[in-house]
Structure formats: structure tokens, C-alpha cells
């Protein structure tokens, strides 16, 4: 059984249709890369999965449970959305770290709030886990730095640790390196690659084609709100079947 089943997702902003009949599934421990030109709807799709946008049509199931059905209001209750969001993590293009908290506090804040509500873990345990995550990101010595004291690459790695702290079933990345100088993208990609090697279930929107081909188990190419082509990365990226995919990829091989 797939960990994630997305069926027939539709999304409109006013009169413009941004997502059109998007369906795919993802297996536990696999990485899915989404590629496509600007405006093709990649961010909107991730935002739908994270309940930051509400799809107009379609269903989303996680581990066999229907967590969203556009035609069933009972799956859209405001108070349940919060818990459902926890199935997913989201790493933003521009990090969105909380500036008034240190790297460690950024990582532990949400988990501490959850623990305060539901009981369970002690503050010490959460903090230890947070330090552990930062160490895993190569940031053990930056735990007490504030975001403005960190480079972009370091900030993004803190953001990844922050998302991982809640143990999401599926971790989503929205162009995690687009806001970074080229010399800093490597360190973030390395961290994501490590996560893939540890079989973290991930959806990665990226313009780094070489990275997508290496790391992903599956690639989706989107254009104009539809999935044009999907499958094994070596098929889609190296031997695309569709003309639109070829055109898109040719822009990357030229430079």
C-alpha cells in the first residue's frame, strides 16, 4: 500500500485553473521529484498537500486513510486540519525560520508545544532530539545561533531539521536551494541526499536536474497545471517521451 495517494486534484485561483487532474502515489521510503517550468503549479501542489490551499476537487490519502476529499466536508473540519498537517512537513524556498529563536529553539518549539498539549516527552528529551537533528545536519556548533547569524545554506538546514523534528510521514521541499548562492546549494543537497539514503519519504520540487535524477525514485514533470509525464527518473529525464518534457529539459542541457 502506498503511503500517499493523490487522486484527481484540481485547484483554481479565480478563473485560472492552476492544477488539473493531478494524480500520483508515493511508496514509503521513496523520493519523488517534481520538475517543471515556472508557473506550472508545483508550489500550489505542495501547498495543497500541506493544507495551505484547499483543492477544489480530488482526494488525498495517507497510509490508506482518506484525509481530504473535496466532495466531503467531513474531511475538511478546521480542528482536524491541524493534526492532518502533521502527516506532512514542508521546507520552504525562503526558509521562513523564526528570527527570534535560536537554531535549536526553531527545531524544538513546535514539538514542545505539542508535548505541552498532549503530554509525553520532557523538555530535555525534545532538546536532546533537537541537538541530534542539528548534528545530523552538520550544525552541532550552531545550535545557539540566531537565524540572522547563519548563512542561507545553514538556515535551510535548520529549516529541514525543524520539519524533521515532528517526524512527518512525508517531507516536502519547495525548491530548497533556489534562494541560495551556488556555492551553498551543495551543502543543502548533500543533506537531502543523506535523508534519501535513510529512506525518508520525500517530495522534492527542484530545478536541479542532476540531483533529481540521482536522488529520486520517481519524477513528475508538470506543465500548465497537468502532469505531462511521470516515472523512473532515468526514463523521464534521460529519455523523455513527451515533446513538452524534451523542450523543458533542453533548457537545462544547453547550459
Amino acid at each position: 500500500m502506498s503511503i500517499l495517494e493523490v487522486r484527481n486534484i484540481e485547484k483554481h485561483f479565480g478563473a485560472t485553473q492552476v492544477l488539473n487532474d493531478i494524480s500520483f502515489s508515493l511508496e514509503q521510503g521513496q523520493a519523488l521529484s517534481i520538475i517543471g517550468s515556472s508557473g506550472s503549479g508545483k508550489t500550489t501542489l505542495l501547498r495543497c498537500l500541506n493544507f495551505l490551499e484547499k483543492p477544489d476537487g480530488g482526494t488525498i490519502s495517507v497510509k490508506g486513510n482518506m484525509i481530504f476529499d473535496a466532495s466531503d466536508p467531513a474531511t475538511q473540519l478546521e480542528k482536524e486540519i491541524r493534526t492532518k498537517r502533521l502527516h506532512f512537513g514542508l521546507v520552504f524556498q525562503n526558509f521562513n525560520l523564526f528570527p527570534q529563536y535560536t537554531a535549536l529553539q526553531n527545531v524544538t518549539l513546535a514539538r514542545e508545544l505539542l508535548a505541552a498539549e498532549r503530554g509525553g516527552e520532557s523538555k530535555e528529551a525534545i532538546e536532546a532530539a533537537g541537538r541530534e537533528l542539528l548534528a545530523q545536519m552538520g550544525l552541532a556548533d550552531r545550535a545557539n545561533h540566531y537565524p540572522h547569524q547563519l548563512s542561507g545554506g545553514q538556515q535551510q538546514r535548520v529549516a529541514i531539521a525543524r520539519a524533521l523534528a515532528l517526524h512527518p510521514d512525508i517531507l516536502c521541499f519547495d525548491e530548497p536551494t533556489s534562494a541560495l548562492d551556488p556555492e551553498l546549494t551543495g551543502e543543502v543537497l548533500r543533506v537531502i541526499r543523506n535523508l534519501a539514503e535513510q529512506n525518508t519519504t520525500m517530495i522534492i520540487v527542484t530545478h536541479e536536474m542532476a540531483f533529481a535524477r540521482d536522488v529520486a525514485d520517481q519524477v513528475i514533470f508538470m506543465d500548465g497545471g497537468v502532469i505531462v509525464e511521470q516515472g523512473d527518473p532515468r526514463e523521464v529525464i534521460d529519455h523523455p517521451k513527451e515533446e513538452r518534457t524534451r523542450q523543458f529539459l533542453s533548457r537545462y542541457s544547453e547550459n
Binding site: 500541506n50 523564526f98 518549539l109 508545544l113 515532528l166
Partner: peptide, 25 residues
């Protein structure tokens, strides 16, 4: 808005986001 959205995807309530994230900023 990214601050609020970051709080939301981390499962915080509106209230928690206001008091723990945006208020001090």
C-alpha cells in the same frame, strides 16, 4: 505570511502562532 505558514505546517494553532511567533516580531 511565511512566518504564519511555517507555524501552520508545524501544527501550531492560530493562537500559538500569534503568541509564540508573530507577537514579538
Amino acid at each position: 505570511v511565511g512566518q504564519q505558514e511555517a507555524g501552520m505546517v508545524l501544527g501550531m494553532t492560530k493562537r500559538q502562532i500569534f503568541f509564540k511567533v508573530t507577537l514579538l516580531q
